[in-house]
Nucleic acid binder design. Structure first.
Length: 568
RNA sequence: CGGGACGUGGCGCAGCUCGGUAGCGCACCUGCUUUGGGAGCAGGGGGUCGGGAGUUCAAAUCUCCCCGUCCCGACCA
């Protein structure tokens, strides 16, 4: 393509709104424009990248035998009501009413729709099946942000596997895992598979593919020694055992004005945070519940949610706390509490000599023996792992890495197929629900993650596989006839050799052309100018290194074709 | 949803405190010069100042209401 004919609106300044590097550069480079919060237009350059990402995903899905569909984006409420997610999805689902008054939703994922189609599978002999689509999803995100990283409308590849049993699901899950590893390799994204929470999807297990980046929104716990990696929503660690204080008797003591773990730790007769119980009053689907963790530990909400299966989970208001426990936050405890559900973190199991609030302002208990004094209903892993704790597998210190969630694969099981009636006959003639898996990759987010991972001070540095153009032929001066004819010839030859090449034939200054080529991140630049053309040469500059070498006009095409093909 | 900031040409900003009918840089158009790292000079086009209501002779500026955008947190497959 000839740059002079293209719409590539590059900007010298990034919009003031943009924070993330990918956001700034994709806007500055003329790849995207915002329409409103969470909704972006893909400009021609942006669409080229988006399509290349999608093509790689498509190729790898096809390679594992997946079949492509295209499903409606607008769904009747009934199918979501049937699966129970009309309520579960809450405000995150865009809903509208049609002229007949029928409730309708914009699809945020397609388990229901694909499962509905799968009701037409009637025999185990037709299994397994892998179905997928690349479709626009709509999610009313509470806070869209960071350009393409978190939006309300985006293309996602979602695939679904259908099997007769768990073994089949495991095989398809593994197949997807491997396909995802290949996809991220081809996208040059350093994605690592990590253990993840399944959240609202339900199911027995899930793996996220995480790309380390400060622009990310998830924290991953990682062990450099053995490779253990898990989302903080799921991660565990080994704790060094605590020597309990020897306080055999349960005793109340006055603590005027003491409202925090830290102050109780300092006060005379108090207790170090490690010897305290932190009592959090949570409302789980309307039920008042106490969540207990060690004083120096942090409650992870997702862990609590995963353990209980609650949909709506929030901290109690101070009024609710007072009503149910008789004291304000800062003086709360579970000693003697009988009517409420009490979920305690495993780190408290077997502990004694502890201090905790007495459910009366300005009073605490000490000498608390958890087994003796607290009616724990359930034990669960509730605490959030922090950096430096010991790896649960090998004991080495853990690190925490901020990441972008680029892909997520789930073992769903039979929850959708059972309620939506996707059942088949097995070899014994018995009716069995399909065992399902669900697998997603955000196309635009992968594109943003690549931009986030591959850029420098001058702009984007796209990997060849997804670059909008693989090479640009920059004619330094359109007034120099020798340069123009040499540039045109190289351009034509590269095109005929199947290279995605851009010809910068604009009547602009060299500096502008170089700066723009670097900003939009074209991997290879061939500079054709009077300085070298007279010698029968051009300059060759890979974007990543910036190193320029002189190459003969008659060999540049061969050299470039070889390099591009090697990269791809 | 809580906290904070902001909304003035395509992008970045000033003007608002102290009302007098909009300005700067980049970009754009024309001409001349220039031409290997975001050119110079001259001339020019483009803005219901987010929207509505109000106060006033007069509102970008003051008052009220609404809308939108960004950041932090909450939340989130």
């Amino acid at each position: 393509m000839r740059w002079s004919n293209l719409f590539i609106p590059t900007l010298r300044d990034a919009p003031a709104d943009a924070e993330a590097a990918s956001h700034k550069l994709l806007v500055r480079g003329g790849f995207i424009r915002q329409l409103h919060a969470g909704h972006y237009s893909l400009l021609p350059l942006g669409l080229r990248v988006h399509q290349k990402v999608a093509d790689i995903v498509r190729a790898e899905m096809d390679a594992i035998g997946a079949q492509e569909f295209l499903l409606p984006a607008m769904h009747p409420a009934s199918i979501w009501q049937k699966s129970g997610r009309w309520e579960v999805m809450g405000d995150e689902m865009f809903r509208l009413v049609d002229r007949k008054g029928a409730d309708t939703a914009l699809g945020m994922t397609h388990e229901e729709i694909f499962t509905d189609l799968a009701t037409e599978i009637t025999s185990y002999k037709s299994l397994p099946q892998i179905w997928y689509q690349i479709q626009t999803k709509f999610r009313d995100e509470p806070r869209p942000k960071s350009g393409l990283l978190r939006v309300r409308e985006f293309a996602m590849k979602d695939s679904y596997s259908f099997d007769i049993d768990e073994a089949g699901l495991d095989a398809n899950f593994a197949r997807h895992h491997d396909a995802y590893v290949r996809i991220f390799q081809r996208l040059s994204l350093p994605a690592m598979p990590v253990e993840a929470s399944s959240g609202a999807m339900g199911g027995s297990g899930s793996t996220e593919f995480m790309v380390p980046s400060p622009a990310g929104e998830d924290d991953v716990v990682r062990c450099g020694a053995c490779g253990y990696a898990a989302n903080v929503e799921r991660a565990t660690s080994q704790l060094t055992p605590v020597d309990d204080r020897d306080i055999p008797e349960l005793a109340r003591f006055p603590t005027p004005g003491i409202r925090t773990i830290a102050t109780l730790a300092k006060v005379e007769g108090g207790a170090g945070a490690i010897h305290q119980i932190k009592t959090m009053v949570m409302i789980l689907d309307g039920e008042v519940t106490l969540a207990l963790v060690r004083g120096d530990h942090q409650l992870n909400l997702q862990k609590l949610q995963d353990h209980t299966g609650a949909i709506d989970i929030r901290p109690a208001t101070p009024d609710e706390t007072l009503e149910h426990l008789g004291a304000h936050p800062g003086s709360l405890g579970a000693v003697g509490v009988e009517k409420l559900r009490i979920i305690a973190d495993l780190a408290l199991e077997g502990r004694s000599g502890l201090a905790t609030g007495a459910n009366e302002d300005d009073w605490h208990w000490t000498g608390v023996d958890v087994a003796r004094d607290i009616g724990v209903t359930e034990w669960a892993d509730l605490r959030e792992v922090t950096a430096g704790e010991a790896c649960p597998r090998c004991g080495a210190p853990l690190e925490i890495v901020r990441c972008i969630e680029a892909g997520h694969i789930f073992k769903l099981g039979t929850s959708y197929s059972a309620v939506l009636g996707a059942e088949v006959l097995d070899p014994d003639g018995e009716t069995r629900p399909l065992v399902m898996g669900s697998y997603g990759i955000g196309i635009g987010r992968a594109m943003a993650a690549a931009a986030e991972t591959h850029h420098d001070d001058n702009g984007l540095v796209w990997p060849v596989s997804i670059a909008p153009y693989e090479a640009v032929v920059t004619i330094v001066s359109m007034k120099d006839e020798a340069s123009v004819s040499a540039g045109e010839a190289i351009y034509a030859e590269l095109r005929s050799r199947g290279i995605d090449v851009l010809l910068d034939d604009r009547d602009a200054r060299a500096g502008v052309k170089f700066a723009d080529a670097e900003l939009i991140g074209v991997p290879y630049r061939v500079t054709v100018g009077p300085r070298t053309v007279a010698d029968g040469e051009v300059e060759f500059t890979p974007r990543a290194s910036g190193d320029t070498t002189r190459v003969g006009i008659d060999s540049i095409v061969e050299q470039l074709v070889a390099i591009v093909n090697e990269q791809d």
